[in-house]
Amino acid sequence: SPVALPPFFMRGSIIQLADGELKRVEDLKTEDFIQSAEISSELKIDSSTVERIDSGQSPNAVVIQFSVGELKAQVCVEVLVEYPFFVFGQGWSSCCPDRTTQLFELSCAKLCVGDVCVSLTLRGLR
């Protein structure tokens, strides 16, 4: 079946950090996101904790409920099981790491309830 995952999750994809440095997607570290957000005028990093993982509308989809930021706002996203999230201190993680590795050659851990993912929000929001 076709996979509509963005191309930048493919192993070897070149990612530009906010300071201009280029890294491969598989080499990104938690600090790269934190430092990039620090010098961004618009974006800031939030910690989004995985609260629930449920089946999605289609067989290959899951609905992930996050508790976002200090306000613990509840946000649900529906993604394909192979969609990788970046877990603080751990790196790329997906609901089906075998499939992520198979499709994108990107090494992944299993995304679990309680994992804290890197997410973004707007700096200007008050």
């Binding site: 996101f33 939030d46 976002v68 929000t121 929001l125």
Partner: peptide, 19 residues
């Protein structure tokens, strides 16, 4: 070779906020 911005890789999870 395409170069992708760092912020494409992590989700934008904006909590609904009221002013």
């Amino acid at each position: 070779v395409p170069v992708f911005p760092w912020h494409s890789l992590v989700p934008f999870l904006a909590p609904t906020q009221s002013d």
